[in-house]
Design a protein around this nucleic acid. Structure first.
Length: 510
RNA sequence: CGGGGUGUAGCUCAGCCUGGUUAGAGCGCCACGUUUGGGACGUGGAAGUCGUUGGUUCGAAUCCAAUCACCCCGACCA
Protein backbone atom coordinates (compact mmCIF):
# COMPACT_ATOMS: atom_id res chain seq x y z
CA UNK A 1 0.00 0.00 0.00
CA UNK A 2 1.16 3.49 -0.78
CA UNK A 3 2.57 5.13 2.29
CA UNK A 4 2.23 8.69 1.06
CA UNK A 5 -1.44 8.48 0.10
CA UNK A 6 -4.34 8.46 2.54
CA UNK A 7 -6.80 5.67 1.68
CA UNK A 8 -10.10 6.81 0.17
CA UNK A 9 -12.15 5.24 2.92
CA UNK A 10 -10.35 7.25 5.59
CA UNK A 11 -10.42 10.70 4.05
CA UNK A 12 -11.55 11.12 0.47
CA UNK A 13 -10.62 14.79 0.21
CA UNK A 14 -7.11 14.18 1.48
CA UNK A 15 -6.76 11.17 -0.78
CA UNK A 16 -7.56 13.37 -3.76
CA UNK A 17 -4.88 15.88 -2.81
CA UNK A 18 -2.36 13.13 -2.05
CA UNK A 19 -2.91 11.54 -5.45
CA UNK A 20 -2.26 14.86 -7.18
CA UNK A 21 0.85 15.43 -5.15
CA UNK A 22 2.22 11.92 -5.60
CA UNK A 23 1.69 12.09 -9.35
CA UNK A 24 3.11 15.62 -9.47
CA UNK A 25 0.14 16.92 -11.43
CA UNK A 26 -0.13 20.32 -9.79
CA UNK A 27 1.13 22.54 -7.04
CA UNK A 28 -0.19 25.50 -5.11
CA UNK A 29 0.79 28.92 -6.39
CA UNK A 30 1.88 31.91 -4.33
CA UNK A 31 -1.50 33.44 -5.15
CA UNK A 32 -4.50 32.18 -3.26
CA UNK A 33 -6.80 29.97 -5.23
CA UNK A 34 -4.50 29.61 -8.18
CA UNK A 35 -2.54 26.54 -9.10
CA UNK A 36 0.52 25.60 -11.05
CA UNK A 37 -0.16 22.80 -13.46
CA UNK A 38 3.02 20.75 -13.59
CA UNK A 39 4.23 18.97 -16.71
CA UNK A 40 2.60 15.65 -15.77
CA UNK A 41 -0.71 17.41 -15.23
CA UNK A 42 -0.43 19.67 -18.23
CA UNK A 43 0.21 16.66 -20.44
CA UNK A 44 -3.25 15.42 -19.47
CA UNK A 45 -4.72 18.77 -20.44
CA UNK A 46 -2.88 18.60 -23.74
CA UNK A 47 -4.40 15.19 -24.28
CA UNK A 48 -7.84 16.62 -23.59
CA UNK A 49 -7.19 19.54 -25.93
CA UNK A 50 -5.89 17.31 -28.68
CA UNK A 51 -8.86 14.99 -28.60
CA UNK A 52 -11.54 17.63 -28.16
CA UNK A 53 -10.11 20.09 -30.64
CA UNK A 54 -10.19 17.45 -33.31
CA UNK A 55 -13.80 16.66 -32.50
CA UNK A 56 -14.85 20.32 -32.59
CA UNK A 57 -13.24 20.84 -35.96
CA UNK A 58 -14.90 17.70 -37.25
CA UNK A 59 -18.29 19.32 -36.67
CA UNK A 60 -17.45 22.81 -37.94
CA UNK A 61 -16.05 25.27 -35.39
CA UNK A 62 -12.52 26.63 -35.71
CA UNK A 63 -10.33 28.37 -33.16
CA UNK A 64 -9.76 32.06 -32.53
CA UNK A 65 -8.66 34.17 -29.60
CA UNK A 66 -10.48 36.93 -27.75
CA UNK A 67 -8.83 39.16 -25.15
CA UNK A 68 -8.44 38.54 -21.44
CA UNK A 69 -9.72 41.98 -20.48
CA UNK A 70 -13.33 43.03 -20.91
CA UNK A 71 -14.79 46.50 -20.37
CA UNK A 72 -16.78 46.43 -17.16
CA UNK A 73 -19.78 47.94 -18.89
CA UNK A 74 -20.10 44.88 -21.16
CA UNK A 75 -21.03 42.73 -18.22
CA UNK A 76 -24.02 44.89 -17.38
CA UNK A 77 -25.69 44.41 -20.74
CA UNK A 78 -27.29 41.07 -20.00
CA UNK A 79 -29.23 41.15 -16.74
CA UNK A 80 -29.00 37.46 -15.80
CA UNK A 81 -25.38 37.30 -16.81
CA UNK A 82 -24.28 40.14 -14.56
CA UNK A 83 -26.17 38.62 -11.65
CA UNK A 84 -24.37 35.34 -12.12
CA UNK A 85 -20.84 36.60 -12.48
CA UNK A 86 -20.49 40.06 -10.92
CA UNK A 87 -19.69 38.64 -7.50
CA UNK A 88 -16.63 36.79 -8.66
CA UNK A 89 -14.99 39.12 -11.15
CA UNK A 90 -11.42 40.24 -10.76
CA UNK A 91 -11.32 43.95 -11.65
CA UNK A 92 -8.40 45.81 -13.20
CA UNK A 93 -8.48 49.45 -12.15
CA UNK A 94 -4.93 50.70 -12.72
CA UNK A 95 -2.45 50.68 -15.55
CA UNK A 96 0.87 50.91 -13.77
CA UNK A 97 2.86 50.83 -10.55
CA UNK A 98 4.35 53.91 -8.99
CA UNK A 99 6.86 54.44 -6.20
CA UNK A 100 5.05 55.41 -3.04
CA UNK A 101 5.93 55.87 0.60
CA UNK A 102 5.58 52.15 1.34
CA UNK A 103 7.07 50.80 -1.88
CA UNK A 104 5.11 50.29 -5.07
CA UNK A 105 1.49 51.33 -5.35
CA UNK A 106 -0.99 51.25 -8.21
CA UNK A 107 -1.09 54.33 -10.39
CA UNK A 108 -2.73 55.49 -13.58
CA UNK A 109 -6.31 54.79 -12.60
CA UNK A 110 -8.44 53.69 -15.54
CA UNK A 111 -11.48 55.68 -16.58
CA UNK A 112 -13.51 52.52 -16.96
CA UNK A 113 -12.43 49.47 -14.97
CA UNK A 114 -11.72 46.30 -16.90
CA UNK A 115 -12.69 42.88 -15.73
CA UNK A 116 -10.71 39.72 -16.27
CA UNK A 117 -12.98 37.42 -18.24
CA UNK A 118 -15.00 34.98 -16.15
CA UNK A 119 -16.29 33.78 -19.54
CA UNK A 120 -16.38 35.56 -22.89
CA UNK A 121 -20.00 35.76 -24.04
CA UNK A 122 -19.90 39.54 -23.77
CA UNK A 123 -16.79 40.39 -25.81
CA UNK A 124 -17.61 37.75 -28.31
CA UNK A 125 -21.16 39.06 -28.59
CA UNK A 126 -19.73 42.52 -29.17
CA UNK A 127 -17.52 41.27 -31.99
CA UNK A 128 -20.19 39.09 -33.56
CA UNK A 129 -22.42 42.14 -33.75
CA UNK A 130 -19.84 43.68 -36.07
CA UNK A 131 -19.14 40.57 -38.08
CA UNK A 132 -22.71 39.54 -38.74
CA UNK A 133 -24.63 41.59 -41.30
CA UNK A 134 -26.53 39.09 -43.34
CA UNK A 135 -27.89 35.58 -43.05
CA UNK A 136 -25.04 34.74 -45.41
CA UNK A 137 -22.59 35.43 -42.55
CA UNK A 138 -24.21 32.72 -40.47
CA UNK A 139 -23.54 30.46 -38.79
CA UNK A 140 -20.49 31.79 -36.94
CA UNK A 141 -18.75 28.85 -35.31
CA UNK A 142 -15.80 29.79 -33.12
CA UNK A 143 -14.05 28.13 -30.24
CA UNK A 144 -11.27 29.44 -28.05
CA UNK A 145 -8.85 27.76 -25.67
CA UNK A 146 -7.94 30.14 -22.89
CA UNK A 147 -7.80 30.88 -19.20
CA UNK A 148 -10.62 32.52 -17.27
CA UNK A 149 -10.91 33.83 -13.78
CA UNK A 150 -13.64 33.47 -11.20
CA UNK A 151 -12.72 34.74 -7.78
CA UNK A 152 -13.81 31.67 -5.86
CA UNK A 153 -13.78 31.63 -2.10
CA UNK A 154 -13.13 27.98 -1.62
CA UNK A 155 -10.84 26.33 -4.06
CA UNK A 156 -9.61 22.79 -4.72
CA UNK A 157 -6.93 21.77 -7.16
CA UNK A 158 -8.45 21.24 -10.61
CA UNK A 159 -12.04 21.09 -9.33
CA UNK A 160 -12.35 24.73 -8.51
CA UNK A 161 -9.55 27.24 -8.88
CA UNK A 162 -9.71 30.99 -9.24
CA UNK A 163 -8.01 30.82 -12.61
CA UNK A 164 -8.62 27.83 -14.79
CA UNK A 165 -8.04 26.70 -18.32
CA UNK A 166 -10.92 25.84 -20.52
CA UNK A 167 -12.39 25.90 -23.93
CA UNK A 168 -15.39 28.04 -24.77
CA UNK A 169 -17.28 27.65 -28.01
CA UNK A 170 -19.52 30.44 -29.21
CA UNK A 171 -21.81 30.13 -32.16
CA UNK A 172 -24.41 32.33 -33.80
CA UNK A 173 -27.20 30.99 -36.00
CA UNK A 174 -29.96 32.10 -38.27
CA UNK A 175 -32.71 30.17 -36.57
CA UNK A 176 -33.68 29.00 -33.14
CA UNK A 177 -33.72 25.42 -34.35
CA UNK A 178 -30.16 25.61 -35.69
CA UNK A 179 -28.97 26.98 -32.38
CA UNK A 180 -30.69 24.18 -30.50
CA UNK A 181 -29.18 21.62 -32.87
CA UNK A 182 -25.71 23.09 -32.31
CA UNK A 183 -26.18 23.05 -28.53
CA UNK A 184 -27.13 19.40 -28.61
CA UNK A 185 -24.45 18.49 -31.14
CA UNK A 186 -21.74 19.81 -28.85
CA UNK A 187 -23.28 18.11 -25.86
CA UNK A 188 -22.98 14.84 -27.73
CA UNK A 189 -19.34 15.66 -28.58
CA UNK A 190 -18.73 16.08 -24.87
CA UNK A 191 -20.43 12.83 -23.96
CA UNK A 192 -18.55 10.87 -26.57
CA UNK A 193 -15.29 12.51 -25.52
CA UNK A 194 -15.81 11.92 -21.79
CA UNK A 195 -16.58 8.28 -22.38
CA UNK A 196 -14.22 7.41 -25.24
CA UNK A 197 -11.22 9.42 -24.09
CA UNK A 198 -11.47 9.83 -20.33
CA UNK A 199 -13.45 6.62 -19.75
CA UNK A 200 -15.91 8.53 -17.57
CA UNK A 201 -19.54 7.48 -18.05
CA UNK A 202 -21.73 10.56 -18.07
CA UNK A 203 -25.43 11.31 -18.13
CA UNK A 204 -26.60 13.77 -20.74
CA UNK A 205 -29.27 15.99 -19.38
CA UNK A 206 -30.87 19.35 -19.07
CA UNK A 207 -30.40 21.70 -16.13
CA UNK A 208 -33.34 22.99 -14.14
CA UNK A 209 -34.14 26.72 -14.18
CA UNK A 210 -32.37 27.01 -10.83
CA UNK A 211 -29.15 25.47 -12.10
CA UNK A 212 -28.85 26.87 -15.60
CA UNK A 213 -26.17 29.25 -16.88
CA UNK A 214 -26.80 32.95 -16.18
CA UNK A 215 -28.18 34.29 -19.42
CA UNK A 216 -29.09 30.99 -21.07
CA UNK A 217 -32.51 29.84 -22.19
CA UNK A 218 -31.55 26.23 -21.74
CA UNK A 219 -28.45 24.64 -20.26
CA UNK A 220 -27.54 21.06 -21.06
CA UNK A 221 -24.82 19.18 -19.26
CA UNK A 222 -23.00 15.94 -18.86
CA UNK A 223 -22.88 14.72 -15.29
CA UNK A 224 -20.42 12.21 -13.93
CA UNK A 225 -20.47 10.30 -10.65
CA UNK A 226 -17.30 10.19 -8.58
CA UNK A 227 -16.15 7.30 -6.39
CA UNK A 228 -17.33 8.95 -3.21
CA UNK A 229 -20.87 9.14 -4.52
CA UNK A 230 -20.82 12.84 -5.36
CA UNK A 231 -21.75 14.12 -8.78
CA UNK A 232 -19.54 16.34 -10.88
CA UNK A 233 -20.63 18.46 -13.81
CA UNK A 234 -18.18 17.61 -16.57
CA UNK A 235 -19.31 19.92 -19.32
CA UNK A 236 -22.08 22.31 -20.28
CA UNK A 237 -23.71 23.45 -23.48
CA UNK A 238 -26.04 26.44 -23.51
CA UNK A 239 -28.71 27.58 -25.86
CA UNK A 240 -28.59 31.33 -25.28
CA UNK A 241 -31.61 32.09 -27.44
CA UNK A 242 -31.57 35.73 -28.47
CA UNK A 243 -30.59 36.99 -25.02
CA UNK A 244 -27.03 37.93 -25.92
CA UNK A 245 -27.77 38.93 -29.48
CA UNK A 246 -30.33 41.40 -28.16
CA UNK A 247 -27.97 42.65 -25.46
CA UNK A 248 -25.11 43.09 -27.94
CA UNK A 249 -27.14 43.79 -31.01
CA UNK A 250 -26.14 40.84 -33.14
CA UNK A 251 -28.53 41.58 -36.01
CA UNK A 252 -28.65 40.42 -39.56
CA UNK A 253 -30.75 40.93 -42.65
CA UNK A 254 -32.65 37.70 -43.15
CA UNK A 255 -33.79 35.86 -46.21
CA UNK A 256 -37.08 37.71 -45.82
CA UNK A 257 -35.20 41.03 -46.12
CA UNK A 258 -36.00 41.88 -42.49
CA UNK A 259 -33.60 42.69 -39.65
CA UNK A 260 -33.55 40.01 -36.98
CA UNK A 261 -31.49 38.92 -33.99
CA UNK A 262 -29.19 35.93 -34.24
CA UNK A 263 -29.59 32.83 -32.08
CA UNK A 264 -26.46 32.03 -30.11
CA UNK A 265 -24.98 29.15 -28.15
CA UNK A 266 -21.97 28.60 -25.93
CA UNK A 267 -20.38 25.45 -24.59
CA UNK A 268 -17.35 24.62 -22.50
CA UNK A 269 -15.26 22.19 -20.54
CA UNK A 270 -12.41 23.04 -18.22
CA UNK A 271 -9.41 21.69 -16.35
CA UNK A 272 -12.01 20.44 -13.90
CA UNK A 273 -12.16 17.42 -16.18
CA UNK A 274 -8.75 16.46 -14.84
CA UNK A 275 -10.25 16.40 -11.37
CA UNK A 276 -13.12 14.29 -12.67
CA UNK A 277 -10.70 11.89 -14.28
CA UNK A 278 -8.72 11.53 -11.06
CA UNK A 279 -11.79 10.96 -8.92
CA UNK A 280 -13.42 8.59 -11.38
CA UNK A 281 -10.52 6.18 -11.77
CA UNK A 282 -7.70 6.51 -9.29
CA UNK A 283 -7.23 4.18 -6.33
CA UNK A 284 -5.47 4.02 -2.98
CA UNK A 285 -2.13 3.46 -4.72
CA UNK A 286 -2.42 6.70 -6.66
CA UNK A 287 -3.33 7.97 -10.09
CA UNK A 288 -4.84 5.71 -12.73
CA UNK A 289 -4.72 7.32 -16.15
CA UNK A 290 -7.09 6.50 -18.98
CA UNK A 291 -4.67 5.40 -21.72
CA UNK A 292 -5.81 7.92 -24.30
CA UNK A 293 -4.62 10.91 -22.30
CA UNK A 294 -1.63 9.26 -20.63
CA UNK A 295 1.63 10.91 -21.63
CA UNK A 296 3.57 7.79 -20.77
CA UNK A 297 1.67 4.74 -21.88
CA UNK A 298 4.30 2.23 -20.88
CA UNK A 299 7.06 2.26 -18.28
CA UNK A 300 9.77 -0.33 -18.66
CA UNK A 301 11.52 -1.28 -15.43
CA UNK A 302 14.81 -3.10 -15.99
CA UNK A 303 15.87 -5.47 -13.23
CA UNK A 304 19.48 -6.48 -12.75
CA UNK A 305 22.21 -6.95 -10.15
CA UNK A 306 25.53 -7.24 -11.88
CA UNK A 307 26.96 -5.23 -14.80
CA UNK A 308 26.70 -8.39 -16.89
CA UNK A 309 23.02 -8.68 -16.10
CA UNK A 310 22.51 -5.01 -16.83
CA UNK A 311 24.10 -5.40 -20.26
CA UNK A 312 21.99 -8.44 -20.98
CA UNK A 313 18.79 -6.70 -19.89
CA UNK A 314 19.72 -3.49 -21.74
CA UNK A 315 20.16 -5.37 -25.00
CA UNK A 316 16.75 -6.93 -24.56
CA UNK A 317 15.07 -3.68 -23.59
CA UNK A 318 16.54 -2.14 -26.73
CA UNK A 319 14.80 -4.82 -28.78
CA UNK A 320 11.52 -4.14 -27.00
CA UNK A 321 11.77 -0.39 -27.59
CA UNK A 322 12.73 -0.86 -31.22
CA UNK A 323 9.73 -3.16 -31.68
CA UNK A 324 7.38 -0.60 -30.21
CA UNK A 325 8.78 2.72 -31.38
CA UNK A 326 10.92 1.85 -34.38
CA UNK A 327 14.67 2.03 -34.97
CA UNK A 328 14.80 5.75 -35.80
CA UNK A 329 12.92 6.70 -32.66
CA UNK A 330 15.16 4.49 -30.57
CA UNK A 331 18.19 6.41 -31.86
CA UNK A 332 16.46 9.75 -31.33
CA UNK A 333 15.50 8.79 -27.80
CA UNK A 334 19.07 7.89 -26.96
CA UNK A 335 20.16 11.43 -27.81
CA UNK A 336 17.27 13.24 -26.15
CA UNK A 337 18.22 15.52 -23.27
CA UNK A 338 16.79 14.50 -19.90
CA UNK A 339 17.14 15.33 -16.24
CA UNK A 340 17.54 11.82 -14.90
CA UNK A 341 18.14 8.31 -16.18
CA UNK A 342 14.64 7.84 -17.50
CA UNK A 343 14.80 7.46 -21.26
CA UNK A 344 11.72 8.46 -23.23
CA UNK A 345 10.79 7.19 -26.67
CA UNK A 346 7.77 8.38 -28.62
CA UNK A 347 5.38 5.55 -29.23
CA UNK A 348 3.02 7.82 -31.14
CA UNK A 349 4.52 10.72 -33.07
CA UNK A 350 1.14 12.42 -33.45
CA UNK A 351 0.04 12.41 -29.81
CA UNK A 352 3.58 12.37 -28.42
CA UNK A 353 2.65 9.55 -26.11
CA UNK A 354 5.76 7.81 -24.88
CA UNK A 355 7.39 4.65 -23.69
CA UNK A 356 9.82 5.31 -20.85
CA UNK A 357 12.67 3.16 -19.61
CA UNK A 358 13.68 3.66 -16.02
CA UNK A 359 17.44 3.26 -15.76
CA UNK A 360 17.71 5.18 -12.53
CA UNK A 361 19.93 3.77 -9.84
CA UNK A 362 17.10 2.65 -7.59
CA UNK A 363 15.63 -0.60 -6.43
CA UNK A 364 13.01 -2.18 -8.66
CA UNK A 365 10.33 -1.83 -6.00
CA UNK A 366 10.88 1.91 -5.82
CA UNK A 367 10.50 2.19 -9.56
CA UNK A 368 7.31 0.15 -9.58
CA UNK A 369 5.73 2.49 -7.06
CA UNK A 370 7.04 5.51 -8.91
CA UNK A 371 5.24 4.66 -12.14
CA UNK A 372 2.26 3.23 -10.37
CA UNK A 373 1.58 6.47 -8.52
CA UNK A 374 1.87 8.37 -11.75
CA UNK A 375 -0.87 6.27 -13.27
CA UNK A 376 1.10 4.89 -16.22
CA UNK A 377 -1.31 2.36 -17.77
CA UNK A 378 1.28 -0.31 -18.53
CA UNK A 379 4.53 -1.55 -17.07
CA UNK A 380 7.01 -4.06 -18.40
CA UNK A 381 9.42 -5.65 -15.99
CA UNK A 382 12.51 -6.94 -17.73
CA UNK A 383 14.90 -8.99 -15.62
CA UNK A 384 17.36 -11.80 -16.38
CA UNK A 385 14.61 -14.40 -15.92
CA UNK A 386 12.38 -12.64 -18.45
CA UNK A 387 15.23 -12.31 -20.92
CA UNK A 388 15.98 -16.04 -20.58
CA UNK A 389 12.36 -16.77 -21.40
CA UNK A 390 12.45 -14.32 -24.29
CA UNK A 391 9.85 -11.86 -23.07
CA UNK A 392 8.72 -9.39 -20.43
CA UNK A 393 6.45 -9.41 -17.41
CA UNK A 394 3.59 -7.05 -18.25
CA UNK A 395 1.41 -5.35 -15.65
CA UNK A 396 -1.71 -3.26 -16.06
CA UNK A 397 -1.98 -0.33 -13.68
CA UNK A 398 -5.75 -0.30 -13.67
CA UNK A 399 -6.43 -3.76 -12.25
CA UNK A 400 -2.91 -5.06 -11.59
CA UNK A 401 -3.44 -7.84 -14.11
CA UNK A 402 -0.10 -9.48 -14.75
CA UNK A 403 1.23 -11.73 -17.49
CA UNK A 404 4.21 -12.80 -19.54
CA UNK A 405 4.56 -11.47 -23.08
CA UNK A 406 6.99 -12.87 -25.62
CA UNK A 407 9.19 -10.43 -27.51
CA UNK A 408 7.84 -11.73 -30.82
CA UNK A 409 4.37 -10.51 -29.86
CA UNK A 410 5.47 -7.02 -28.89
CA UNK A 411 4.58 -4.54 -31.61
CA UNK A 412 2.84 -1.18 -31.92
CA UNK A 413 -0.45 -2.90 -32.65
CA UNK A 414 0.00 -5.15 -29.63
CA UNK A 415 0.39 -2.16 -27.35
CA UNK A 416 -2.47 -0.29 -28.98
CA UNK A 417 -4.81 -3.22 -28.51
CA UNK A 418 -3.78 -3.60 -24.90
CA UNK A 419 -4.29 0.09 -24.25
CA UNK A 420 -7.70 -0.06 -25.88
CA UNK A 421 -8.57 -3.01 -23.68
CA UNK A 422 -7.54 -1.06 -20.59
CA UNK A 423 -9.72 1.82 -21.70
CA UNK A 424 -12.70 -0.49 -22.23
CA UNK A 425 -12.25 -2.17 -18.86
CA UNK A 426 -11.86 1.15 -17.07
CA UNK A 427 -15.01 2.46 -18.67
CA UNK A 428 -16.89 -0.74 -17.85
CA UNK A 429 -15.77 -0.59 -14.21
CA UNK A 430 -16.78 3.05 -13.89
CA UNK A 431 -20.12 2.36 -15.55
CA UNK A 432 -20.78 -0.53 -13.21
CA UNK A 433 -19.94 1.63 -10.22
CA UNK A 434 -22.33 4.29 -11.44
CA UNK A 435 -25.13 1.78 -11.99
CA UNK A 436 -24.63 0.41 -8.50
CA UNK A 437 -24.85 3.92 -7.14
CA UNK A 438 -27.94 5.03 -8.99
CA UNK A 439 -31.13 4.40 -7.06
CA UNK A 440 -34.82 5.20 -7.37
CA UNK A 441 -36.79 7.11 -4.81
CA UNK A 442 -40.58 7.12 -4.62
CA UNK A 443 -40.85 9.68 -1.84
CA UNK A 444 -38.93 12.56 -0.37
CA UNK A 445 -38.20 10.45 2.70
CA UNK A 446 -36.62 7.82 0.50
CA UNK A 447 -34.57 10.42 -1.32
CA UNK A 448 -33.29 11.82 1.97
CA UNK A 449 -32.41 8.37 3.24
CA UNK A 450 -30.49 7.45 0.10
CA UNK A 451 -28.63 10.75 -0.01
CA UNK A 452 -27.51 10.55 3.61
CA UNK A 453 -26.86 6.81 3.85
CA UNK A 454 -25.52 5.92 0.44
CA UNK A 455 -24.96 8.92 -1.81
CA UNK A 456 -24.82 8.52 -5.55
CA UNK A 457 -27.51 9.45 -8.05
CA UNK A 458 -31.11 9.33 -6.96
CA UNK A 459 -33.72 9.01 -9.70
CA UNK A 460 -37.22 10.28 -9.07
CA UNK A 461 -40.07 12.34 -10.42
CA UNK A 462 -39.94 16.01 -9.63
CA UNK A 463 -41.83 19.10 -10.62
CA UNK A 464 -39.43 21.99 -11.10
CA UNK A 465 -39.69 24.72 -8.50
CA UNK A 466 -36.85 27.01 -7.46
CA UNK A 467 -37.90 27.39 -3.85
CA UNK A 468 -38.49 23.68 -3.37
CA UNK A 469 -35.11 22.93 -4.92
CA UNK A 470 -33.52 25.39 -2.53
CA UNK A 471 -35.28 23.75 0.39
CA UNK A 472 -34.15 20.27 -0.64
CA UNK A 473 -30.62 21.52 -0.98
CA UNK A 474 -30.75 22.99 2.47
CA UNK A 475 -32.15 19.84 4.00
CA UNK A 476 -30.13 17.23 2.13
CA UNK A 477 -27.30 19.09 0.34
CA UNK A 478 -28.50 17.34 -2.82
CA UNK A 479 -29.48 19.22 -5.97
CA UNK A 480 -31.13 18.30 -9.21
CA UNK A 481 -28.12 17.44 -11.31
CA UNK A 482 -30.12 17.17 -14.49
CA UNK A 483 -33.19 15.97 -16.27
CA UNK A 484 -31.70 13.06 -18.20
CA UNK A 485 -32.37 13.18 -21.93
CA UNK A 486 -32.96 9.44 -22.09
CA UNK A 487 -36.03 9.68 -19.90
CA UNK A 488 -37.01 13.27 -20.74
CA UNK A 489 -40.50 12.26 -21.79
CA UNK A 490 -41.37 10.22 -18.74
CA UNK A 491 -43.90 11.79 -16.40
CA UNK A 492 -44.95 10.80 -12.91
CA UNK A 493 -45.96 12.06 -9.50
CA UNK A 494 -43.54 14.59 -8.04
CA UNK A 495 -42.14 13.17 -4.80
CA UNK A 496 -42.77 16.46 -3.05
CA UNK A 497 -45.88 18.01 -4.47
CA UNK A 498 -47.63 15.01 -5.99
CA UNK A 499 -48.12 17.02 -9.16
CA UNK A 500 -47.00 15.81 -12.56
CA UNK A 501 -43.20 15.90 -12.68
CA UNK A 502 -40.30 14.88 -14.87
CA UNK A 503 -37.77 12.20 -14.15
CA UNK A 504 -34.71 13.87 -12.64
CA UNK A 505 -31.41 12.90 -11.10
CA UNK A 506 -30.60 14.20 -7.65
CA UNK A 507 -27.15 14.05 -6.06
CA UNK A 508 -24.80 15.91 -3.80
CA UNK A 509 -22.46 17.68 -6.19
CA UNK A 510 -18.94 19.04 -6.17
C1' C B 1 -17.55 35.96 2.84
C1' G B 2 -19.02 33.29 7.97
C1' G B 3 -17.29 29.26 11.61
C1' G B 4 -13.18 25.99 13.12
C1' G B 5 -8.01 24.45 12.70
C1' U B 6 -2.81 24.85 11.32
C1' G B 7 1.73 27.74 10.02
C1' U B 8 9.24 25.66 12.81
C1' A B 9 14.35 22.15 6.91
C1' G B 10 11.46 19.88 0.45
C1' C B 11 7.44 16.79 3.53
C1' U B 12 5.30 15.19 8.51
C1' C B 13 5.96 17.13 13.06
C1' A B 14 8.45 17.98 18.38
C1' G B 15 9.98 22.34 21.10
C1' C B 16 5.89 27.16 22.88
C1' C B 17 2.13 26.26 28.42
C1' U B 18 6.65 28.02 32.32
C1' G B 19 11.06 33.50 27.22
C1' G B 20 17.65 32.42 28.35
C1' U B 21 24.25 29.41 24.91
C1' U B 22 24.86 27.05 18.66
C1' A B 23 16.49 25.17 17.25
C1' G B 24 15.59 19.23 17.00
C1' A B 25 13.60 14.31 15.02
C1' G B 26 11.68 11.06 11.16
C1' C B 27 11.06 10.89 5.97
C1' G B 28 13.15 13.06 1.56
C1' C B 29 17.78 15.12 -0.83
C1' C B 30 23.52 14.64 -1.88
C1' A B 31 28.21 11.43 -1.49
C1' C B 32 30.38 6.67 -0.58
C1' G B 33 29.82 1.48 0.55
C1' U B 34 26.85 -2.93 1.10
C1' U B 35 22.28 -4.04 -1.53
C1' U B 36 18.61 -4.83 -5.67
C1' G B 37 12.15 -9.64 -9.08
C1' G B 38 7.03 -4.68 -4.87
C1' G B 39 8.77 1.18 -0.98
C1' A B 40 16.69 -1.76 1.78
C1' C B 41 20.67 -0.60 5.28
C1' G B 42 25.17 1.78 7.19
C1' U B 43 28.42 6.07 7.47
C1' G B 44 29.01 11.04 6.36
C1' G B 45 26.83 15.66 4.49
C1' A B 46 23.79 19.86 2.68
C1' A B 47 19.49 22.21 4.09
C1' G B 48 15.51 26.56 8.64
C1' U B 49 15.82 35.21 8.70
C1' C B 50 10.80 29.38 13.39
C1' G B 51 4.54 32.45 7.71
C1' U B 52 4.94 38.05 7.76
C1' U B 53 4.83 42.76 10.28
C1' G B 54 4.68 45.33 14.64
C1' G B 55 4.73 45.34 20.05
C1' U B 56 6.33 43.72 25.24
C1' U B 57 11.36 42.44 27.16
C1' C B 58 18.22 43.07 28.80
C1' G B 59 16.72 38.82 25.69
C1' A B 60 11.12 36.12 21.59
C1' A B 61 10.16 30.03 17.70
C1' U B 62 8.07 30.72 22.78
C1' C B 63 4.09 36.27 25.39
C1' C B 64 0.58 40.13 22.87
C1' A B 65 -1.63 42.36 18.39
C1' A B 66 -2.39 42.69 13.39
C1' U B 67 -1.88 40.49 8.80
C1' C B 68 -1.18 36.65 5.12
C1' A B 69 -1.45 31.64 3.48
C1' C B 70 -3.18 26.73 3.63
C1' C B 71 -6.69 22.76 5.37
C1' C B 72 -11.84 21.36 7.06
C1' C B 73 -17.20 22.84 7.37
C1' G B 74 -21.02 26.33 5.33
C1' A B 75 -22.91 30.12 1.24
C1' C B 76 -21.33 30.54 -4.35
C1' C B 77 -19.62 28.11 -8.65
C1' A B 78 -17.10 25.04 -14.80
Amino acid sequence: MAKNIKPRAEDYAQWYLDVIKAAQLADYSPVRGCMVIRPEGYAIWEGIQRELDRRFKDTGPTNAYFPLLIPQSFLTKEAQHIEGFAMECAVVTHSKLEHGAKGLKPGGELEEPLIIRPTSETVIGHMYAQWVQSYRDLPVLINQWCNVMRWEMRTRLFLRTAEFLWQEGHTAHETEQEAEEETLRMLEVYREFAEDVLAIPVVKGRKTEAEKFPGANVTYCIEGLMQDGKALQCGTSHNLGQNFSKAFDIKFLGRDNKQQHAWTTSWGVSTRLIGAMIMAHSDDDGLVLPPRVAQNVLAIVPIFKTPEERAKVAAFVEKVVRSLCGDAEFQAGQKRAKADDVAAYFFDKFTHQRVVVDWRDARPGDKQFHWEQRGVPFRFEVGPKDVDQGGVTAKRRFDRQKGFVELAKISPSYLRLELDAVHRDMFAAATKRRQENTRDAASYEELKAIVTDKGGFVRCFFKQDKSIEARIKEETKATVRCIPMETANERGKCILTGQEGQKVLFAVAY
